[in-house]
Nucleic acid binder design. Structure first.
Lengths: 87, 87, 87, 87
DNA sequence: CACGATAAGAATTGGC
DNA sequence: GCCAATTCTTATCGTG
């Protein structure tokens, strides 16, 4: 309570610094990823689709199927055609 | 230059007020939309899929097909199966 | 759900229509805002600056609140009590 | 493009791999951050407050800059000149 | 464990 | 036509 700048304060500072350091590292990586997408774009790839590919690879097949199934259901309920495949 | 609170100031204020008023209205509508999604969710619908349905309806068929085609292309280039129906 | 096939089509359609209607209204307002900016530009104002002014006015109240909040937060975090609003 | 079929598969694969590799690294860091929060919690800190502190510290510099900026902006908008940095 | 809130990420839009 | 900025979406996290 009456230890301004004392133990609790030091600990707090330490945690804050560790987290902020890690967040910086994380930001560097995020920027790297952005760079790769930019490079891919420069080479003629469609970034939006590329992102979708990455995202599809991440998902488990089962997951994909389930989402597709619900989408199908909704589309049919609305009298629309089967969902191309925009998962 | 030396008309503080003068003509330019009045005009500026007027424009700012008109815009801010419209942005408020816009926000009300956005909130209404959120409410509808929430209500749909409460009724048992899957909000994520519902959003996707809305978005698909917005797109022209041609647009959809084109995106699908590119996706297919990429997936094949990577040796992955056709999108979605990994049967 | 008392529908043959899986999804309550009527309900779904109703939700979709409500959302699409609201999105249209929203678009109208967005266009109105654009018009006002265009008019301001025609009157000689710098649109970029005008946008910035609007955006800054939107943020200011929050900033004040947050500055107040951070003191409180630090003190709580250190086990001390805030100035007066020790909720 | 000198590939039979449409897309430069090797390039695409290379981009995908680079991105996926970076995303893995990013995930490791995210997990590290989580660990630090968990540790802080174990030491008796309130994680929610800690998060808020981090987030506020991130925003503060921007706020200061923006507060300075708004004066300038208003003056420019009114055709007056800023204090000293009339770039 | 579902819900709501917050934050990260992605996509669209507008300006240069 | 590209870059930047806003806006919309998705995912994570804490809470009841």
């Amino acid at each position: 309570m009456s230890d301004p700048g004392g133990v609790a304060g030091d600990q707090l500072r330490a945690f804050v610094e560790r987290i902020e350091r890690l967040e910086e590292e994380k930001k560097v990586i995020s920027d790297d990823i952005k760079d790769v997408y930019a490079e891919a774009k420069g080479t003629g790839f469609d970034v939006k689709i590329l992102r979708k590919v990455i995202s599809l690879r991440k998902k488990q097949p089962h997951e994909r199927e389930e989402e597709d199934a619900i989408l199908d259901l909704y589309m049919h309920a609305l009298g629309m055609n089967g969902p191309a495949n925009d998962a």
